[in-house]
């Protein structure tokens, strides 16, 4: 289970996310969270979220501007447990 991390969204419960199964956006959708998105491929930035703790890895290079402290869940996977605001 080295690829599974605990992800907390908007102070909610910890959700298990397998970093080998799709993007963080897809994983959170599987947990029935209402996610903001448009392009789902890193260029529009609509899924922009605040990373309060943890690290992510981009599987596609984001073309949207990623402001300090932000992440784009549509094109990244967790590299550690995460706490995010979405």
């Amino acid at each position: 289970m080295a690829n599974t991390f605990k992800v907390k969204v908007n102070g909610g419960p910890e959700l298990a996310v397998d970093a080998t199964e799709g993007t963080l956006l897809e994983a959170l959708e599987k947990h029935q969270l209402e996610m903001h998105y448009h392009c789902r491929s890193g260029f529009c930035g609509a899924c922009r979220s605040t990373l309060k703790s943890g690290t992510v890895r981009y599987t596609t290079e984001p073309l949207a501007y990623v402001r300090k402290g932000d992440i784009l869940p549509c094109c990244c996977v967790p590299e550690s447990d995460l706490d995010i605001e979405h």
Binding site: E34, H36, Y37, H38, C39, R40, S41, F43, C44, G45, A46, R48, A64, Y65, R67
Partner: peptide, 29 residues
């Protein structure tokens, strides 16, 4: 969403969820 992208706080606090969820399927690349 757009204003947060350029460093403003979201001005419409009570409109944080998408009232037209079907829009997204047309906006996916």
């Amino acid at each position: 969403l757009r204003m947060q992208a350029i460093g403003f706080d979201a001005p419409f606090e009570n409109q944080r969820s998408n009232p037209l969820p079907w829009m997204n399927k047309y906006l996916v690349s």
